[in-house]
Amino acid sequence: MTEQRDPIIRLVEIEKSFGTQKVLRKASLDIRTGKATVIVGGSGQGKSVLLKHMLGLLKPDNGQVLIHGKDISRMKKNELMEVRRDIGVLFQSSALFDSITVYENVALPLRERTKLKEAEIGRIVKEKLALMDLHGVEEKYPAQLSGGMRKRVGLARALVLDPKIVFLDEPTTGLDVKRSEEIYKLFHHTQRKLGYTSVIVSHDAPKIFKLADYVALVADGKIQECLPPEDFQTSENPYVKAFIQATMGEIYRGEGESL
C-alpha cells in the first residue's frame, strides 16, 4: 500500500469470526476515491465477508470500517442510512425484488428516497436502462430475464441514484464469456462516464484486471497486497505469486487447448 492519499473507505485491522472459524485476522485495506479496486482471492477466503463489512451488513469483532473517515460499525441506524445514500450495490444474486417488474425495481430507490414526480422517475429509469443496453424489458418480471440481463438490471438499480461508491459482488459469476465481456464493457463505460468509486469482488482473475486500477488479494484472513494490476502480477508476496500462478496457468492451458 504505497499511497495513502484520500482513501474514501478504510478498513483498519478488521477481525471477524463465525463461531470458531476465524475468517478475517487484522485485514486492512484502503479504497481510493474515483478508482476501481478489485478484491480477489480463493473461495471461502472472506471476500464477501469483507464486502459486507463495507456495506455495514456485518460488524467486525475488532477494528474499524471508515467511510469518509467515519466508523460505520459504531454508527446508529439512521447515521448508517445517511452513509448508504451515497452507495449503490450489485449483489451476487442480483437481489432484484422478484414480485415487482423491472421498471418498478429500478424506480424503487427513486420512489422511496426522493420526492421526484412520476414523470421524472420514468425518464431516469428509462435512461439508466438504456445505459445498460436494456430495451423493452420494463414490464417484465426478473424471473423472465436471463442471468446477464438480471445483472444489468441490478447494475441499473445500483446506479439509479448516481451513487459515489458502487459495490459489485461477483458481477460475472454464472455468466458465459460473452456476457461477462458485456458486463465488463458496460461497467468500464459507466465508470468513466459517471466517475464513481468502485469495489468489485470477483474470482474472475485475470480478466477482471482489465477493469482494475488496484487489485487486492485476500488470503489467510488478511489483505496480502493492494497494487495496480501490473505491479500485482510481479509481486514477490508468496500468496500473490501462488494466486497468479494458479489463475494465469489455467488461462494459458485453456488457450492452448482451444488452438
Binding site: 456495506l55 445517511e82 448508504r84 452507495i87 449483489f91 437481489a95 425484488f97 459495490f167
Partner: peptide
Amino acid sequence: TEQIDALECMAI
C-alpha cells in the same frame, strides 16, 4: 435471496 440486504443497502 438477499432482497432484504438490498433494501438496507439502498437505505430503505
